[in-house]
Computed example of a mutant assay.
Amino acid sequence: MSVVAWTAVGSLAAWGWLLLGQGYFWRTDQRLPRREAPGTWPDVAVIVPARDEAEVLPVSLPSLLAQDYPGRAEILLVDDGSTDGTGELARALAAQQHGGLPLRVVSPGEPEPGWTGKLWALRHGITLARAREPEYLLLTDADIAHAPDSLRELVAAARTNGLDLVSQMARLRVAGGWERLIVPAFVYFFSQLYPFRWVNRPGARTTAAAGGCVLLRAQAAERAGVPDSIRQAVIDDVSLARAVQRSGGRIWLGLADGVDSVRPYPRLADLWRMVSRSAYAQLLHSPLLLAGTVVGLALVYLAPPVAACVGVLGNDAAAGWAGGLAWAVMTGTYLPMLRYYRQPLLLAPLLPFTALLYLLMTVDSAIQHYRGRGAAWKGRTYARPQATPDR
């Protein structure tokens, strides 16, 4: 057998493991667990960190103001140094929403050294919220639109199942061509790294959350020392989940119905920045992990179509069969995510090309890090953090 054929066999073996041994990551049936209405609905503080979000607030904020929640809830929008009138727009939208949830717009000032901007904003909002002693905190991004029953369903799921953290992966916007090619794959790759079934097992070693929508028990947050204990985290949602679990909390993560991101990513450059700003941080800024990731992506995603083409064009039957089968398994695992995003299933065979783009984005993330640019977001750049001691 040729080197290409052996490589294809290795890729096929890897896909056999991913298909059956990686927590069935490719399935999309992890939705909110069983829910029963509590006898008394607890108080909730909804905390929305916002920095220059005037473009998306007219779509997202009214959905929070209009929440159909039987208990007491209020919204704290933390205006994190916006220059586009985010705070004023939020107040105007609240004034138009008669009978909705009450809104307070507050400002934390510039982050202190050692803090990322979002976590600094969350710290300010959580501190203010604790004065009214809510049982739960809903941490949700400014670009997330919620169905009218979203808060009610999240609280019911947490109460019914004794969960300290309930997180839903918001359905990201998919409208343009580049979004169709890249966005469903983003969630697919995330679930491959953090299989939802593994995350949702009590005492699981795999922990993760999706930062766009996190319902957090206030006592669990205090016990875990968050956000102070994760103040330097660039990938704050995963760090939050780990802190809560390490302190004895139970967490749950799944795909959302009725929680949608309205932020547009119309160009490849927009999506590139979204991925590359934190990709190398995900690899702990490790050159060894970066090299392993590049090799792994090449073997698992790029080798199958290359081997299949070599088999057809180069008369290498073993390479063609192994590469073709690996490509077919890969394509099959991607179909459920495309169905979830209501996208054409014909996009599934293009997953190797999308994986190549992600590989290049990851390498670019490392390059930007070593150029001193770190993780950049809305005018702020975060260099590699120093180790933060556990609290």
Rank of each mutant, 00 (worst) to 15 (best):
G372F: 11
S107I: 00
G23Y: 02
V9N: 04
V300L: 05
A90R: 08
L151P: 03
L101R: 00
A54G: 07
L268Q: 11
V44K: 00
L351H: 08
V4K: 01
W26Q: 11
A348L: 12
G379Q: 10
P42M: 02
A175D: 09
V329G: 03
A66T: 05
M1R: 02
E135V: 00
E135A: 04
R31G: 12
A348I: 10
G320S: 11
C213T: 14
T381K: 13
P389F: 01
V46I: 15
L181G: 06
G332S: 06
V295F: 09
L18T: 04
G254P: 10
R201N: 05
R217C: 01
G379C: 07
V46S: 04
A279K: 09
L253M: 07
A66Q: 09
P134N: 06
H285G: 14
P385T: 01
R242H: 01
G372C: 13
P42C: 00
Y188H: 11
R130C: 10
A233L: 07
E112V: 11
R246Y: 02
L359G: 11
A317K: 09
A54V: 07
A269M: 13
V234Y: 11
L216W: 00
V56A: 12
H146Y: 09
G225Q: 09
L32D: 05
P304S: 15
A73D: 03
Q67F: 05
F353P: 07
L122S: 14
A322V: 08
D43P: 06
I235N: 14
D149G: 02
T333A: 01
D149M: 04
N315K: 08
D43I: 02
